[in-house]
Amino acid sequence: MKPARFEYTAPRTVPEALAALADTGRDVRVLAGGQSLLLEMRLQRLRPDLLVDINRIAGLDRLGVDDGMVEVGALVRHEVFDSPWAVPGPLGTLLSLAAPNIAHPPIRALGTMVGSLAWAHPASEWCAIAAALDAVIRLRGPEGAREVPARDWFRGPFETARRPGELLTSVRLPLLGEGTGVGFIEHRRTHFSFAQVGVAAALTVRDGVVVEARIGLANCADRPVRARAAEQALVGAEIGSTLFARAGRVAADQDAAPLAEPYADVEYRRHAIAVLVGRTLRQAAEGARQ
């Protein structure tokens, strides 16, 4: 199908974009990478009145590090993170483990990390990582700038704390300490399918004991999930396959709330979550400098 009619504007500055977005009486959407938005418009599941194309705004493609955080601008494309050196340290490794799971190269050439956070697909890789690391989403809007931590950001499938008229300008993710081990594994039916389950993990281990654990789950509930119960089960315990299997079980039973899908009922999905969390933790532990 073809998109329904809409108006289009391509502002050159953030204030111009905000002015366009202020038209809250209508369905106004931000076009960044567009790889989800245009798809939904093509299927006419979305019929916006106005598209605000932010691709010509200078500076939004900035990727910078300061203060132990990396700041990813709204126009930084997925493909940037294919390389483990785009971002320093274990975070760069984690992002590069996740990036190849996002669609395929031509989609990654246009789609953006911040756009994924705005879109908030329950199966999104970036959203799961943002949840795990409690990333900070930065917005500008009619009432000025504000920041929202990921724990308050995801409200449901495709629902976020974004207010009308607001523009996501960047996301800040904590650089993980040297020695943190990371893992990212997806379970999918084919290379092109959405993940049935995706797991992101970061583990800090000292003397064989977990000091800190971060687990994010993709497509394990109606929104991205940080598996806090599983994290708690890990901290202070001795690493090993028994622990990881137990943490997987906890994540599946307490943190996740999977919905039935074709070819994956709730029973199977819970089982797969437990297995995948265990495996991702093992991957992370292998990378952790102890």
């Binding site: 289009y8 391509a10 076009l31 567009g34 790889q35 245009l38 798809l39 093509r42 598209l51 194309d53 691709n55 669609a103 395929h104 190269p105 031509p106 989609i107 050439a109 246009l110 092109f192």
Partner: peptide, 24 residues
């Protein structure tokens, strides 16, 4: 945006021309 039959190069980068507006 899935099959890729429409892939073209925009400024040298391969993109799906079905998921990009001409005005972009």
């Amino acid at each position: 945006g899935v099959c890729g039959a429409c892939t073209v190069l925009v400024d040298g980068r391969a993109v799906r021309s079905c998921l990009m507006l001409a005005v972009q």
